[in-house]
Computed example of a mutant assay.
Amino acid sequence: MDIKIDELNWKILNQLQGNARTSFADIGRAIGLTAPAVAERVKKMEDAGVLMGYTAMVSHALTGHQLKAMVTLRAFMGKLKPFLATVDAFDEVVNCYRITGNENIVMEVVLKDQFHLEKFIDKLIQYGETRTNIVLSHIIKNAPIYKVKSI
């Protein structure tokens, strides 16, 4: 199903990315539509695959994972496909991207401490060379995955 993402749909998407639990009535008040009109537009965007789901944001620090890092992997010859087939099994990985450049993969990982990081890197070295950057702070708080706006 094709759908046109007009200015109102962009506004709805921005509202939902700010808080996916916002009621249709609240969204409608913010953008000048009725709650049923918002609900209809949201349903159409869900059916078309524009809205792919709703998630909960978890404080990893409060769950005992005090360390966050960005880990890149430069895969050894013949090891990229095996890595791609197993990366889902690594509980530490919260985001993983295949990228261009010298490295093949960049992962956002959460870990309990430096010892956990060491064990995680030990699991990765069979696939290639790693480079780790420890995250010191989160600059953009509560940012949506994608900042959507009309172009």
Rank of each mutant, 00 (worst) to 15 (best):
M1I: 10
D2H: 11
I3E: 04
K4H: 14
D6A: 09
L8Y: 05
I12Y: 02
L13P: 01
L16C: 03
N19S: 03
T22D: 10
T22W: 00
A25L: 05
D26V: 08
D26C: 08
R29T: 06
R29H: 07
R29I: 04
A30T: 09
I31T: 05
T34L: 06
T34A: 14
A35V: 04
A35Y: 05
P36H: 05
A37C: 03
V38H: 07
R41N: 02
V42N: 04
K43D: 05
K43C: 00
K44V: 11
D47I: 03
D47L: 06
A48I: 09
A48Y: 13
A48N: 09
V50R: 00
V50A: 02
G53N: 02
G53Y: 05
G53L: 05
Y54T: 08
Y54Q: 07
Y54C: 03
M57R: 10
M57G: 13
S59N: 12
H60N: 11
H60Q: 13
A61M: 10
A61W: 10
L62P: 08
L62F: 13
Q66L: 13
L67P: 12
A69K: 02
A69Q: 10
M70E: 13
V71H: 00
L73N: 01
A75D: 07
M77K: 06
M77R: 03
G78Y: 06
K79F: 08
L80H: 03
P82N: 04
L84R: 09
A89M: 12
A89W: 12
A89F: 09
F90M: 05
E92R: 01
E92W: 06
V93I: 14
V93M: 07
N95E: 15
N95K: 13
Y97N: 09
I99R: 02
T100H: 08
N102Q: 11
N102C: 07
N102A: 08
N102S: 11
E103M: 05
E103F: 11
N104H: 11
I105W: 01
M107N: 04
E108W: 05
V109W: 00
V110Q: 04
V110K: 00
L111K: 01
L111H: 05
K112I: 14
D113T: 13
Q114C: 03
F115C: 09
F115R: 15
F115A: 14
I121M: 02
D122C: 09
L124Y: 06
Y127Q: 08
G128S: 02
R131H: 14
R131W: 13
R131M: 11
T132F: 08
N133D: 14
I134Y: 12
S137E: 15
S137A: 13
H138W: 12
I139R: 01
K141A: 11
K141M: 09
N142D: 15
A143R: 08
P144C: 04
P144R: 02
I145Y: 15
Y146H: 15
K147E: 13
K147I: 11
K149Q: 14
I151H: 11
